[in-house]
Computed example of a mutant assay.
Amino acid sequence: MAGGPTTPELVAAISNAGGLGNLGAGYLTPEQLRSMIREIKQLTDQPFGVNLFVPEQRIESEETIGQMADHLNIYRVELGIAQNPAIQKYSESFEEQVQVLLDEEIPVFSFTFGIPPQDVIQTMKQRGTIVIGTATTIEEAKQLEAAGVDAIVAQGSEAGGHRGTFLKSVSDTQIGTMALVPQIVDHVTIPVIASGGIMDGRGLVASLALGAAAVQMGTAFLACPESGAHTTYKQKILSGNEDCTEITRVYSGKAARGIRTEFMNDMHRYPGNIPAYPIQNAMTRDIRQAAAKANNPEYMSLWAGQGLRLATDRSAAVTVKQTIDQANVLVKLIFNLRRVGD
């Protein structure tokens, strides 16, 4: 949800409705991050969270970067933008982002792509902030618990956006939510949050039955009025099917699930090496931004999970309420069935 979809309005609306709104802040500058946190605080007095990307040290050869730059110029010509744009930096400073979170005393800090330095986790906890990590395997979950996090997001392969895998290759960690959640629950002692393909009350009840303490939903909110997703992006979400997404590295250099596009199809035939994240992410940014301005979804990164056929354009508050109401109806139905069986 980083990169625009999670606005202060969306975060606050979810928290005000009884959920825990989260700001996807991985791409925000420290100044933007501070401003958005303060705006959220103006819109809600309820708890909310902020999610950051754990930095990765990746080195790419000049040859790999140069070849990719030349290839991307093909799309720049097609979109009518300048070739070989200068890239000032590949990513924001994680340390500076963390300092903003500490300064602003946020209620919940979540992260993905790995495990932050121990001093970051401990300082957050000392300040009273709940710390949540992301795991795609049982071993990752065990390492997160050993690192001292308070809860773990179990990210199934159905989830939209970037994979949180950090111990093995993504191809070895495509475990579905239904299989992943109960196994992580059985191997850690802290709360587990189910994520991936959960779109309504049915997914919530199923996750609780598997042992999860809560669920994390992203795609379900992408088309909400409060979402900052591009209008064309929202239209693709609302018209998409369960089989129109795939996991790709072509946009950012890191595996992520999104709606299939012409850019993905074409880049999958690229004969060279794709620079790792965040290098590739920075190299394709101008193409994605130009495509958004031109309302051309075929060159935009349209992150989405496999449950997107269930997405609606209802408000965030209504989405939260209907999810809870549907879950309550199902729980009562199950309870009554058990009573009849007894």
Rank of each mutant, 00 (worst) to 15 (best):
R202A: 07
S15H: 08
T173V: 03
N241I: 02
N328P: 15
R38G: 13
L144P: 10
E56N: 11
G228M: 08
T6Y: 11
I324F: 15
A220I: 06
L330I: 04
L52A: 05
N295D: 13
L330D: 09
P182Y: 01
Q118R: 10
D186P: 10
T173M: 04
T165P: 04
T129N: 07
P191F: 08
T231I: 15
D325L: 05
I87G: 11
T231C: 14
A206E: 06
T129S: 05
V11L: 09
E140N: 06
R338C: 15
F113A: 02
M68E: 00
E39V: 05
I247P: 12
N336A: 14
Q67E: 04
H268L: 00
G196D: 04
P85C: 00
A25Y: 13
E62N: 13
E56H: 10
L144I: 05
K293M: 01
P116E: 06
G211H: 10
I198C: 08
I279V: 01
D325C: 06
S110D: 07
N273F: 04
Q216H: 07
M217Q: 08
T284Y: 00
E60A: 05
T232N: 09
K321W: 11
V170E: 15
Q97Y: 15
R34P: 14
S93W: 14
A282N: 01
R38H: 14
T134D: 06
F111N: 04
G305C: 01
D266F: 00
G148W: 07
F94Q: 09
T29F: 13
Q99E: 14
S239P: 15
P278H: 02
K125Q: 12
A194D: 09
T29H: 14
M1N: 08
E139T: 08
G203N: 09
M300Y: 00
G133W: 01
E262N: 03
E92G: 07
D325A: 10
M1G: 09
V153L: 06
P225K: 01
M124P: 07
L52N: 06
I324H: 15
P191V: 03
Q174R: 04
S169N: 13
V205W: 10
L23N: 10
D200N: 07
D243T: 04
R127G: 03
I324D: 15
L180H: 08
T231S: 15
Q183M: 04
I121C: 09
G258P: 10
E62K: 12
